[in-house]
Design a protein around this nucleic acid. Structure first.
Length: 293
DNA sequence: AAGGAGATCAACCGCCGTATT
DNA sequence: AAATACGGCGGTTGATCTCCT
């Protein structure tokens, strides 16, 4: 019964960093034949690696459609928003950054973004927990029904995401469900900021000004008021902002500018919070986003 | 210039859901 | 229906690089 033994049980397979020669072999083989069955690929390509290792090397490094290098503010913004919504669902997040791999995003989050948020007093672990809880709280059947027909073949979205996007009851209004989920998720940012604002010291209070403003802007209604609110909040609390805090302020200012410009280009001047925060298609897989609902 | 500490990122590991026999 | 492999995912590790003292 079942299939033939797995390649990983074979002895003498190489591990560790790939050499240029190995890369060349793998590239040449896939360009000519496609990857096909990963298990049999190493033998056919003349590599002493397991199929899993080959697949990883291809998807994370050799694939021609991978964008490498520094993440843009737009990309950072997307990651932060989606992480608030989905938690550590890197593959799902990666579908919204088509030229980035889940591994790269995961690394970037762990080494850059998480630290930044932590430094600002926002607990990313808590947001991830809440995202998970929201997903688990939603009935899978409804979610599946809601998403059926809009998921892309390459999408990695499954129950959790479906629950998030589709949790809305019998009538699967994906747009409003996604809006609600996004708003709720982003409120966590606001809550985190609020808690520290009232419970923490002055230093903490000031350092949350930027984060609070971000959450506020993302949650709040007025497009045109966003930058003003940020300015007001940071001014009110940033008397003592210095050094690193200035860096954060500038950083979040950049993000906010990005947010504002994307809002302005796509909306009227008096949007509701849900409309501002969550263009629902933004959270659906790219291929599905092109689909007419 | 040298050594240590921290940051970065490619790659591995183990688990899970799905497909196949 | 059960057993097993496969593909994919998220967490973690460890080698390398960069910065600081």
């Amino acid at each position: 019964m079942g299939r033939s033994p797995c390649c990983e049980k074979e002895a003498g397979l190489k591990k560790g960093p790939w050499t240029p020669e190995e890369d060349q072999k793998l590239l040449a083989y896939i360009e000519q034949h496609g990857h096909g069955c990963w298990r049999s690929l190493p033998t056919k390509a003349g590599l002493r690696r397991c199929g899993k290792s080959c697949r990883l090397r291809w998807t994370n490094y050799l694939r021609p459609d991978i964008k490498r290098g520094k993440f843009t503010l737009q990309e950072e913004q997307t990651i932060i928003q989606l992480h608030a919504l989905l938690g550590n669902r890197w593959s799902a997040i990666a579908t919204h950054l088509p030229k980035r791999t889940d591994n790269e995003i995961k690394n970037y989050w762990n080494t850059h973004l998480k630290k930044r948020l932590t430094k600002m007093g926002i607990d990313p672990a808590r947001l991830a927990r809440e995202a998970k809880l929201r997903a688990l709280a939603s009935p899978p059947a409804t979610a599946t029904a809601a998403l059926s027909g809009v998921d892309s073949p390459t999408s990695t979205l499954s129950f959790s995401e479906s629950a998030l996007f589709g949790a809305g009851g019998a009538a699967p209004d994906i747009h409003s469900a996604a809006r609600a989920a996004a708003v709720q998720a982003l409120q966590s940012y606001g809550e985190a900021c609020q808690e520290h604002h009232f419970g923490g010291g002055a230093a903490a209070e000031t350092s949350f000004a930027g984060a609070g403003a971000l959450a506020g802007v993302l949650l709040d209604c007025s497009v045109t008021g966003a930058d003003q609110r940020f300015a007001a909040r940071t001014e009110a609390g940033s008397g003592e902002l210095q050094g690193e805090d200035d860096d954060d302020k500038g950083y979040w200012n950049s993000i906010l500018n990005m947010v504002n410009s994307s809002m302005s280009s796509s909306s009227s001047s008096s949007l509701t919070s849900s409309e501002v925060v969550a263009d629902p298609e933004m959270f659906l897989p790219t291929a599905a986003a092109a689909t007419q609902f």
